[in-house]
């Protein structure tokens, strides 16, 4: 579904993506792992067209997407840091984003799920970090797109919201959608991931299931497996 070929990106002298190749099939939950600054967000933003890569190709469903824009109509994206215009209310923001895509949304259902009704008329600048993240999640999931990209979706969420989020993601998977997630929470990965993509130094270091990773590193749990990779790579 998504294919990335020899993607290069540097910010000044810092090379973030260094000839990255990746292909992701349709359907399932794919988790992108990697230490801080390994290029997870840059990879995601390249797929979204927010970062312009120096070299390489990205195609979704066989169609090249670089410099295109219509394809974003079928992607839902949850940004890492929820930055909203602070002088809008939640309801206004939802209405505005809905106008951008001409199709039915399920925001009402999601607002109820996350208990956001009391906040609808509040300004976004006055919300707490966790509530903002909930608004972020509603904005992301309301369009029902085939490809869902979540950048650190768990940050700031309370346990109940986290549970709802997990259910939501599993439901999307059952509906045959492709979900791309970055996270640092290993229990989340073990629970959710169909496949892991491990990024290191701007390249794919490992791609496979959680079990395969544990076998490869001869470690029992994921946390140690990851630590093992980082140790052997950075000695």
């Amino acid at each position: 579904m998504i294919s990335v070929e020899t993607l290069h990106k540097s910010f000044g002298k810092l090379t973030v993506l260094d000839g990255l190749d990746l292909s992701i099939d349709e359907g399932g939950i794919f988790v992108i792992l990697g230490p801080n600054g390994s290029g997870k967000t840059t990879l995601i933003k390249s797929i979204l067209g927010m970062v312009v890569p120096d070299k390489g190709n990205i195609a979704i469903d066989g169609k090249p997407v670089l410099k295109e824009w219509q394809y974003r109509g079928n992607i839902d994206y949850l940004p890492q840091i929820a930055n909203f215009p602070s002088n809008l209310t939640v309801a206004e923001l939802l209405k505005l984003v809905k106008q951008l895509r001409d199709r039915p949304t399920r925001d009402q259902e999601l607002i109820e799920l996350f208990g956001l009704e009391p906040f609808l008329e509040k300004k976004l600048g006055h919300l707490s970090g966790g509530t903002k993240q909930k608004v972020n999640i509603v904005l992301t999931f309301m369009f029902n797109s085939d490809l869902i990209i979540l950048d650190e979706p768990t940050s700031g969420l309370d346990p109940i919201a986290l549970l709802h989020l997990k259910e939501l993601i599993l439901k999307e998977k059952e509906a045959g959608k492709t979900v791309l997630i970055t996270t640092h929470i290993m229990s989340f990965v073990e629970e959710m991931a169909d496949e892991i993509v491990f990024l290191l130094d701007g390249k794919i270091y490992f791609k496979g299931t959680v079990n395969e990773l544990q076998q490869k590193t001869e470690q029992q749990d994921l946390e140690h497996a990851i630590a093992q990779i980082l140790k052997t790579e950075h000695v």
Binding site: G49, M50, W69, Y71, R72, P79, F84, V97, L100
Partner: peptide
């Protein structure tokens, strides 16, 4: 930034 992730 929000708009950039939208089909625009």
């Amino acid at each position: 930034e929000l708009l950039l992730a939208q089909p625009l």
